[in-house]
């Protein structure tokens, strides 16, 4: 009897240590979307190593161009965390938990920029681009899709017929390039991406002009899958919030063109929610 108890404890210990070992080896899967310039490999690889170092776990970055694909992966539990746009965050709120909100220029908000080729000196708002070619970012992007359509709707135009042709660039950066090369006569992108690229790729931003800026929206948030464990959630949140605390973290934030992360509040996204309802899509 005593022996069985000892064996039982031993087995439990073994199982525990196995679980521990398993947990240590399972990578944290983080989805990256074009809400920020997610295709720059070198700085992101440094960030990933930084995370591995802090979490004592392998970290995997999973990059997908389309927001919906990242949302699907979250839903299918193929991702633990993701940095997504505020529109899918609000739209798929039941599937995700707000983990952290980036801070840029001291504020956890960003805007939608209406950009036109630098040669276009006249355009002042989207209402000057009737029957032109317009580049959207992604149908699940706020700054790159929802905002310009909302503005057209507010002006009494039908966004579906207003432009001669529209297309999706599937990233803010490509929309910027489309406008810079003249492929599109105008485009809508995230202010954060434009600001970041104006530092890293000034030749691209110089070929365009910001014709109009939208109101502030809650910054594209870092979210966690709803089913992520509390401990894991906290560890990840702590990591992001404490990035400003050490030298390496600050350097990484500088490369991401961010001040840092805050816990954030769902109230930040009330405007986005109003927008979704106003446009009446989905």
């Amino acid at each position: 009897m005593k022996l069985t108890r000892i064996l039982g404890v031993f087995a439990a210990l073994l199982a525990f240590s196995a679980a521990q070992a398993d947990d240590r080896l399972t990578p944290v899967r983080i989805g990256l979307t074009p809400t920020f310039p997610h295709d720059q490999y070198r700085p992101l690889e440094k960030w990933r190593l930084y995370m591995e170092h802090k979490l004592h776990r392998p970290v995997e970055f999973i990059r997908r161009d389309r927001y919906i694909e990242t949302m699907d992966l979250l839903r299918l539990k193929k991702l633990d965390f993701a940095w997504i746009c505020d529109y899918p965050y609000v739209h798929f709120r039941k599937q995700v938990k707000l983990l952290a909100v980036p801070v840029h220029n001291g504020r956890p908000t960003y805007q939608s920029y209406l950009i036109v080729p630098a040669g276009d000196k006249t355009t002042k708002s989207i209402l000057d681009l009737k029957d032109k070619v317009f580049a959207y970012t992604d149908p699940y992007s706020n700054t790159g899709y929802l905002t310009p359509r909302f503005e057209l709707q507010q002006a009494g135009e039908d966004p579906a017929r207003y432009f001669r042709k529209t297309f999706f660039g599937w990233s803010h950066r490509r929309v910027l390039e489309s406008v810079a090369t003249g492929l599109a006569d105008g485009g809508a992108i995230s202010s954060h991406v434009w600001d970041t690229l104006s530092i890293g790729k000034p030749e691209l931003t110089r070929a365009t002009r910001v014709a109009a800026k939208s109101a502030d929206y809650g910054f594209a948030p870092f979210v966690a899958r709803v089913s992520v464990g509390e401990e894991e959630f906290r560890a990840m949140q702590k990591l992001l919030l404490e990035m400003t605390a050490d030298e390496e973290g600050r350097a990484l934030l500088k490369e991401l063109n961010l001040d840092g992360f805050i816990v954030g509040d769902t109230r930040l996204y009330e405007r986005t929610e109003r927008l979704i309802k106003a446009v009446g899509e989905k």
């Binding site: 070619v133 042709k165 492929l183 006569d185």
Partner: peptide, 12 residues
């Protein structure tokens, strides 16, 4: 549909 030089030969 698309041209390599959209400024001189735009879409459509």
């Amino acid at each position: 549909f698309v041209s390599s030089h959209p400024k001189s030969v735009p879409m459509l």
